[in-house]
Computed example of a mutant assay.
Amino acid sequence: MYTPEQLERRNRSPWTKAQFILAPIQFIVFIISFALVIRYLATGEGYWVATVSVWIKIALIWALTITGMLWEHDIYGKYFMAREFFWEDLGNLIAILTHNAYFVAVWLHLDSRTIMWVMVFAYVTYLFNAGQFLWRGIRSAKERRLLQAQLQAQSAGMAKPS
């Protein structure tokens, strides 16, 4: 997942902490916004509160994208589409494009239900992307624990008298 040098840069980067703070906030906003959008689609009520929640969600995905690009630069030396982070960046690109389709739908003067269906689609792409990041994080943590255990075993083996 990470070379030892990349892991050190990851641990030193202020953007790692920003990502750990913003990601769960975005997920909570997603859950609330998704519920509000579905409520509007099901009942026809609460359009403005759903709209405000959509704006907050879009602002957060942009905040995570920008801080993520700064993080990626700190770790891999590229702001976007580093080889090691290609699939995560591609997923994020799709999610952010679908979120911003909201503005296109508004600009085209589509009806409010269609606009909210655009957001349902955007939120599905976000779920796939969030799942991908979660899977990568779990895999990365397992690899770090395995590497640490191997290093400890090697140290213990070298410390034993022959």
Rank of each mutant, 00 (worst) to 15 (best):
T67L: 02
L41W: 09
L151Y: 14
W15C: 00
G157C: 06
I28T: 12
L90R: 09
G68M: 02
I61V: 15
F85H: 15
L108H: 11
V37Q: 06
V104T: 13
Q152W: 09
A156L: 12
G77P: 04
W55R: 09
H109M: 08
P161L: 11
E143D: 12
L22K: 02
A18Y: 03
F86G: 01
S155D: 14
H99R: 00
E72R: 08
S13N: 03
D89M: 06
L41T: 03
V120Y: 06
A63V: 05
M81S: 04
P161G: 06
N100P: 02
L146R: 15
S13W: 00
A105M: 07
T43A: 05
L147C: 07
V120W: 07
A95R: 08
E5K: 13
F20C: 02
I56A: 09
Y40W: 05
K160V: 10
F121D: 00
E88A: 10
G157D: 14
G46L: 00
E5V: 12
A82M: 10
L60Q: 02
I115S: 02
V120Q: 05
V29P: 02
V106E: 05
A35L: 07
S33V: 11
L110N: 10
A18I: 09
T65Y: 13
K160F: 12
A105W: 09
E84S: 11
S155V: 06
R83F: 09
A141D: 13
W48H: 09
L97M: 11
K78E: 11
I58H: 03
S140Y: 10
M1C: 01
V120L: 13
T16D: 01
H99C: 13
N92S: 11
E72A: 09
E5D: 14
T43L: 05
P4Y: 10
F86Y: 13
F34P: 01
Y76E: 01
F34H: 06
T51F: 15
W55N: 07
Y2Q: 09
M1S: 14
W107R: 11
E72G: 02
F30L: 10
M116Y: 06
M119I: 06
H109P: 01
A130G: 01
P161F: 12
P14K: 06
F128T: 05
W135K: 07
A153W: 11
I66Y: 11
W117D: 01
R145L: 14
T16W: 04
S53P: 00
P14E: 05
G68C: 02
T43H: 05
T114A: 09
F86H: 08
H109Q: 14
W48A: 03
T65F: 15
W87Q: 07
G44T: 07
V52S: 06
A153P: 00
T16E: 00
W48I: 01
Y47E: 08
H99W: 12
I66P: 00
P4G: 03
G46M: 00
Y2M: 07
G131L: 05
G44A: 04
A141L: 12
W48N: 09
H109K: 15
F85N: 15
Q148M: 09
L97S: 10
A159Y: 12
D74N: 08
L70C: 05
